[in-house]
């Protein structure tokens, strides 16, 4: 009988269990009713089975979101593990939906499930992609907005993974600032 290496038999376990959420903007319903948990997974193989199965972000109708968060964390500021945190926010222009959005989202997912942020991976809660007519947004959420070393390391790694040029800066906003903002955007606590 042929001997199969364990590699071919067992699924590759991830450090964390992750949950994919889908939000569809239906104004006739309550906001939370529009947020659906798709499924959760904790192996590389199950991640790909999910990713290859669902619609690409760039093909989602405007007003929809995908979120991938560690199991047990809901993709909203109000969650106990998000409320003291913040997000690195990447604003895309309209052309980037076709050129960059899907690549950016996949590279972000691979950073999350692969624990690419090394000793700061525990600071990462998840990531969100918002598909919007006025410009799509991708954000990476961390659990504590008062940890500059972790936040800067995570921001640099994110830019590097997405191959965002050095001269293009991205900003980190604390959720508390975003919640209480008066203007259109919250102030950046960090930039990289």
């Amino acid at each position: 009988s042929t001997l199969l290496s364990p590699d071919a038999l067992i699924k590759h376990p991830l450090q964390n269990k992750w949950a994919l959420w889908f939000f569809k903007n239906d104004r006739t319903k309550e906001w939370t009713a529009n947020l659906k948990l798709v499924t959760s997974f904790d192996t590389v193989e199950d991640f790909w089975a999910l990713y290859n199965h669902v619609q690409k972000a760039s093909k989602l109708p405007s007003g929809c979101d995908y979120s991938l968060f560690k199991d047990g964390i809901q993709p909203m500021w109000e969650d106990g593990q998000n409320k003291d945190g913040g997000r690195w926010l990447i604003n895309l222009n309209k052309q980037q939906r076709h050129s960059d959005l899907d690549n950016f989202w996949l590279e972000t997912l691979l950073c999350l499930i692969g624990e690419s942020f090394e000793e700061y991976s525990d600071d990462v809660n998840g990531a969100v992609v918002n598909v919007r007519n006025k410009g799509d947004k991708l954000s990476l959420w961390t659990r504590d907005a008062t940890r500059p070393d972790a936040i800067m390391k995570i921001g640099k790694k994110l830019k590097d993974s997405l191959k965002i040029p050095i001269k293009i800066a991205i900003g980190f906003q604390a959720h508390t600032d975003t919640m209480t903002k008066t203007g259109s955007t919250a102030r950046d606590r960090f930039r990289v």
């Binding site: 590389v44 193989e45 590279e107 950073c111 692969g114 624990e115 090394e118």
Partner: peptide, 18 residues
Amino acid sequence: GSKIFYERSFLLQCRNSP
């Protein structure tokens, strides 16, 4: 404790394995 992490290239290799 020890952490399980995966390189991007390895994850991409796994995409098409059966």
